[in-house]
Simulated assay, not measured.
Amino acid sequence: MPADTPTILATSGGIGPGRRTRLTFTALTDFAVELSGVNGRAPRICLLATAMGDDKAVLHHLTEAAQSRGFIPSHVALFPMPTVADITAHLLEHDVVWVFGGSVAGLLAMWRLHGLDAALRTAWQAGVVLTGVSAGSICWHAGGTTDSFGPQLRPVTDGLGFVPYANGVHYDSEDQRRPLLHELVGGGVLPAAYATDDGAGLLYRGTEFVEAVAEKGGAGAYFVDARDGAAVETALDVRRL
């Protein structure tokens, strides 16, 4: 059964190095599956690695990780052409769509070119849980900070906007992330933002933020808004999974 309301879990986690496989899905991804309400059968998860150029090795390792977790995986690749004829119908057959990190700018361009943006909105509204890490977190928001263009972070302001906030990822592990998000929100380039340390996630029901969760001890989450032309950051309560 699908989630009872449109649901997004936007994270800086959910995946890590595996012991018997190259990658393994972790507690944040398990929580996304739980949110889907699936019961009595293996969860169906659609993997999107557009932000990595649909790299076949990446897709192999993600598929292997999903299988080892007991999920039934599929993927949609867009290079050199879409691998399914009806992307919307394919997504609607799944409980969760999981999006890998990489170039969020490239991801957004390719999704729009092939109509995956509209397909994802339809799936989200139908109760398919949307989740992912890094670029797979920023994409659901109005924008955020990205290294899509090079090592010096820049803003991305054309996210899908399923939720009306900006997003900061890897907040505790990449030095440029926090100050740039503050600058962009304070200057009005981005709207108010939610941000996550590595290992934390943000749960949205519909367009509203519900709670911050974490799979890693000490991982924090934050709300950043503009007051009198300056950014103000507030630490959020975080529920440990």
Results as ranks from 00 to 15, higher is better:
Asp225Ile: 03
Ala3Arg: 04
Leu59Asp: 10
Val133Ala: 09
Leu108Trp: 05
Leu184Met: 10
Gly14Ile: 00
Ala195Ser: 15
Leu78Gly: 03
Thr146Ala: 00
Gly168Val: 04
His90Met: 10
His61Asp: 15
Leu47Asp: 04
Leu203Phe: 07
Gly127Glu: 10
Ala193Trp: 00
Asp175Asn: 13
Val99Arg: 03
Thr131Gly: 03
Cys46Trp: 05
Pro73Leu: 05
Leu184Asn: 03
Ala200Thr: 08
Gly101Phe: 09
Gly136Ala: 10
Val58Asp: 00
Thr131Met: 09
Arg112Lys: 13
His170Pro: 04
Ala51His: 02
Ile138Asn: 09
Gly127Ser: 08
Asp95Ala: 03
Leu48Glu: 01
Leu120Gly: 05
Val133His: 07
Asp117Lys: 06
Leu47Gly: 02
Asp175Thr: 15
Phe162Asn: 04
Arg20Ala: 14
Gly218Asn: 13
Pro155Ile: 11
Arg19Gly: 02
Tyr171Ser: 02
Leu47Met: 14
His182Val: 02
Thr146Glu: 04
Ile8Ala: 11
Leu181Gly: 06
Ala77Gly: 13
Leu62Ser: 09
Leu47Gln: 08
Ala109Gly: 01
Pro191Asp: 12
Gly53Tyr: 01
Thr83Ala: 07
Leu78Glu: 07
Val128Tyr: 09
Leu107Phe: 11
Ala226Ile: 10
Asp55Met: 08
Arg177Gly: 00
Val129Ser: 09
Val84Leu: 11
Pro80Cys: 10
Glu183Met: 13
Ile15Gly: 04
Asp4Cys: 05
Asn167Thr: 13
His61Lys: 03
Ala135Pro: 00
Tyr222Gln: 05
Val33Ser: 00
Gly106Glu: 02
Asp158Cys: 10
Trp124Cys: 02
Phe209Tyr: 14
Leu130Ile: 12
Gly16Ile: 01
Gly14His: 03
Ala65Phe: 08
Thr234Ser: 14
Asn39Gly: 05
Ala230Ile: 06
Leu35Arg: 03
His141Asn: 10
Gly115Ser: 11
Thr122Phe: 03
Pro151Glu: 08
Val58Lys: 11
Ala105Gln: 12
Thr5Met: 12
Gly144Asp: 04
Thr21Ile: 02
Arg178Lys: 15
Gln67Leu: 15
Leu130Trp: 05
Thr88Ser: 15
Gly188Glu: 12
Leu203Arg: 07
Pro2Thr: 01
Thr234Asp: 10
Phe209Leu: 11
Phe31Val: 10
Ile8Ser: 06
Ile138Asp: 01
Thr83Gly: 11
Val96Met: 02
Arg69Glu: 01
Gln67Cys: 14
Gly229Asp: 02
Asp4Ile: 11
Ala109Lys: 11
Ser134Trp: 05
Asp30His: 15
Gly16Gln: 09
Leu78Tyr: 13
Gly229Arg: 04
Gly150Cys: 02
Arg154Thr: 15
Asp197Ser: 12
Val97Met: 04
Arg112Gln: 09
Leu108Asn: 01
Gly168Gln: 03
Leu184Phe: 11
Leu116Tyr: 07
Glu34Lys: 13
Tyr194Gly: 06
Leu203Glu: 06
Val224Pro: 10
Val38Glu: 06
Thr63Ser: 14
Val224Thr: 15
Ala123Trp: 06
Gly143Trp: 00
Gly217Tyr: 06
Val33Trp: 00
Leu203Pro: 01
Glu34Ser: 14
Asn167Tyr: 06
Leu160Trp: 08
Ala89Arg: 15
Arg240Met: 14
Thr122Asp: 11
Ser134His: 05
Leu59Ile: 13
Leu153Ser: 08
Asp147Ile: 08
Val185Gln: 00
Trp140Phe: 15
